[in-house]
Design a protein around this nucleic acid. Structure first.
Lengths: 235, 235
DNA sequence: CGAAGGATTGATTAGTCTCAACGCAAGTGG
DNA sequence: CCACTTGCGTTGAGACTAATCAATCCTTCG
């Protein structure tokens, strides 16, 4: 059984808002997003909700969940979502067969943690317009990489309400903020797409520094991870 | 060379505020806090600073830093701090000798990531008094575990200014907030110690749910991590 | 065509920030 | 041993960002 075959065989669909994992449950599968976006979130007892992270196609959701007795956060579909859910046994077998896979997952966890840190400073220190601009820059860069110059467009599956939950703002204030971004940077948000005419301008407004995404470091990382875990099966 | 001997041999001191690693540098050592607290932080170009995480004695600082080309955040001393700094070569040798060690570090990374997520919802959704109360609960629980009943005391090495940088508030507002916590929960902050007469009361105020600390899951986790990486050298 | 979800607008308020002093205790140097 | 400095905590007044409450509008979709 190859990785790709395993993904295809275990594909499953979810509707917008449906939970894949709920906080407190014991997670039982290794999940990879095939299409659509997933969101990690946490909720306070009174209902206040914070989106913690967005999982884009090709990313895995929960190596952490795989290792932990009880999930410390929930996972749900941003919109219609397709994921592969690989059961524990099959996942262990796959990882055993292919140590590169374990390393790749490890690396993905490391980048995920770095993004989580950036979100922390985003919410803690930036004001509304910077927060939204920063998140737009991040999601663009994660999908398209850093544009050499000019701008471009990418998927943007969040409603303004979800954008608010991700940035720690209210939906109403996000709306006004998006309008201001339209005015100042000509950024457009339409039909689940984000249009950025001048990426550099938006990045400057957000003080966006892409270092935390560690783009283009994958190969280096695989080697280092190998050395960390002995790399006994490395070719 | 054993782990303990390696720690002792590579001990080093830092004064309050001194940087161990600066964002953008390539980190070269595996660090373990021996005494005092370390803080991970990020800074925006205009100087706004966010403390991302606190590293307590016995914890390692930077398995992530160990794997990455350029640090995406900085690391500094909260107050006088002693750390062991184990060079890359020696670290790799140690990890190779002792796979349990690699697993323990992995587990610590997983808990660190969970704490980072809790900080994200803390800053994004809780108000000032809840944020400070939550952080107090966390730091108490990480040092003392969850008290069966009543309260207790623990180290608390942050100034109000650092507390502000950790919670995304201003120092002035933290001061007023701490005063309110004194009034409402009789919490005291004196001489680098935190006194909590009634932990349950403070936890209720903060909506503190300790699940994310994954206390008492270490053994389970070691096994799971082993299975993730083949566990070839497990006894 | 009606219903539902999402975006937009306005008016008001609350929470937190900003700026500016001041107090207190510990440490330092003469 | 005293004068000075420094770090940290405390207080007050006023400004401002973002939250809240409440409609209304637009779009999509069954």
């Amino acid at each position: 059984m190859t990785w790709e075959a395993s993904l295809a065989r275990n594909a499953r669909d979810y509707l917008k808002g449906a939970d894949l994992v709920r906080e407190g449950e014991r997670p039982a599968a290794l999940r990879v997003v095939l299409s659509g976006w997933a969101q990690k979130y946490k909720q306070l007892p009174d209902g206040r909700r914070q989106i913690l992270a967005l999982v884009l196609p090709g990313q895995s959701c929960d190596l952490d969940l795989f290792t932990v007795a009880r999930a410390d956060h929930s996972l749900s579909a941003v919109r219609r979502l397709a994921v592969a859910e690989i059961g524990r046994q099959e996942a262990v077998a796959l990882l055993d067969q292919c140590p590169n896979l374990a390393q790749a997952l490890c690396w993905s966890e490391i980048v995920t943690a770095a993004i989580q840190r950036e979100w922390t400073i985003n919410i803690g220190q930036r004001n509304a317009i910077e927060r939204v601009a920063q998140l737009m820059c991040e999601l663009f860069a994660r999908q398209r990489g850093m544009p050499a110059s000019g701008g471009g467009e990418c998927d943007f599956l969040l409603t303004q309400w979800q954008l608010a939950e991700a940035t720690g703002l209210t939906q109403v204030h996000v709306n006004r903020t998006v309008q201001e971004l339209r005015r100042r940077c000509a950024v457009e948000l339409r039909n689940l797409r984000l249009y950025i005419p001048d990426f550099a301008e938006l990045a400057a407004l957000a003080a966006f520094n892409p270092g935390y995404l560690h783009l283009g470091e994958v190969d280096l990382a695989a080697d280092r991870a190998a050395s960390l875990f002995g790399g006994r099966e490395q070719g």
